[in-house]
């Protein structure tokens, strides 16, 4: 199989709804990512996109995104309803399967049509759990409480993570009220609109202008049960499985980007990775200050690759998640030349 590298990427986040539609969010980042790679839209063989029609409030939003994507003449394009990191996984697979030499993985989220927490509650069992209206914060709070009960962390530990990611004061955060005990607003990601695009190329199609391609050593992703009561919420079993497959436990990582929509989940992911050394954790700032739903995980992989593309790091890992309480996790291991 041909080796595949990240050769360009871009992202945008808009903390307040600014009226841009899917194509308007996606267009600039697709152009920027291709520009960074030194490639034109015509050279893209495979497009894998991701988003959520529920969050956007319109069926067929993928159709609306076509205006921003290289699409004529026709090409291989598949779309999935999940975080864009899973679209990147599919793009990597399709390149290794011989379906092309250049792929664009992209994602967009415009969660302004309705209350995102209410929409995300629709991921739960529609027969027994959904009617209760349990949103991501309620379930994450149960998870954080379970971690505190086992002694893995304290509320102060969570506040320290939130303070570090948001550039705020720990004592000030601890003085704030809970939104879903033991979580405070600062422990929950700031949901916003946004888009991201990552350009992949096989070894023979990496542009000469790309001096330091970020080679994908491996991507692994694993699923867990949706039944919260059947999981040990204090460990991320699926992240550990993926980390084992990539040989991460005990290893040295220069840059780690974690997709943790709640502060305690950063601890869970780091525990599960079991890396021997992490040089820089979330240099992008992580998702607490800005969480463009469905693009956030792809941003983490882009940001991890960025450290290699710009030089200065050799080994980077991007993590992405989907579902409540880290149900579905993906790890992407990247290395410089």
């Amino acid at each position: 199989m041909s080796r595949v590298a990240v050769v360009g990427w871009a992202s945008t986040a808009a903390l307040e709804p600014d009226g841009r539609n899917e194509a308007e969010l996606l267009g600039p980042v697709v152009d920027q990512a291709l520009g960074m790679a030194g490639l034109s839209g015509a050279e893209v063989d495979v497009v894998c996109s991701a988003g959520s029609e529920f969050l956007n409030g319109v069926v067929g939003t993928v159709m609306g995104a076509f205006d921003a994507l290289p699409g004529w003449p026709p090409r291989t394009h598949s779309h999935l309803e999940a975080d864009g990191a899973f679209a990147l996984y599919e793009a990597w697979i399709r390149l290794m399967a011989g379906e092309g030499g250049v792929a664009l993985a992209c994602a967009f989220g415009r969660p302004s049509a309705a209350d995102p927490a209410g929409v995300l509650a629709l991921q739960q069992d529609p027969y027994l759990v959904g009617p209760l209206g349990t949103g991501p914060r309620h379930l994450a709070a149960l998870q954080a409480r379970a971690m505190i009960d086992t002694g893995r962390c304290t509320e102060r530990d969570l506040a320290e993570i939130a303070a570090a990611r948001r550039g705020l004061d720990v004592a000030a955060l601890l003085a704030m009220p809970h939104v879903a005990s033991p979580l405070r607003e600062s422990d929950c990601s700031a949901v916003c609109a946004g888009a991201a695009a990552v350009v992949l190329a096989t070894e023979d199609r990496v542009p000469i202008s790309c001096e330091r391609p970020a080679w994908i050593v491996g991507i692994d992703q694993r699923m867990e049960s949706a039944r919260i009561g059947q999981r040990d919420l204090t460990v991320s079993t699926s992240t550990r499985l993926a980390a084992d497959r990539l040989g991460l436990p005990g290893s040295s990582i220069d840059v780690l980007e974690v997709h943790a929509p709640f502060s305690h989940q950063e601890l869970l992911v780091i525990d599960a990775l079991g890396a021997g050394r992490v040089g820089s954790l979330n240099p992008s700032g992580g998702v607490l200050p800005a969480d463009p739903l469905m693009a956030s995980g792809l941003v983490r992989i882009g940001a991890a690759a960025d450290a290699l593309l710009r030089g200065g790091a050799h080994r980077a890992v991007g993590h992405a998640t989907n579902g409540a309480c880290l149900q579905h996790n993906l790890l992407c291991l990247l290395e410089g030349a």
Binding site: S52, S78, M223, G323, H328
Partner: peptide, 26 residues
């Protein structure tokens, strides 16, 4: 009316601990 049903259906599909991809497009 179920968002990203691969999450809900993980157990029914024997997918726990395995890689899962969703295909939609249209």
């Amino acid at each position: 009316g179920v968002m990203s049903p691969e999450l809900l259906l993980a157990e029914a599909l024997g997918a726990v601990g395995k890689p899962v991809l969703r295909a939609y497009t249209s």
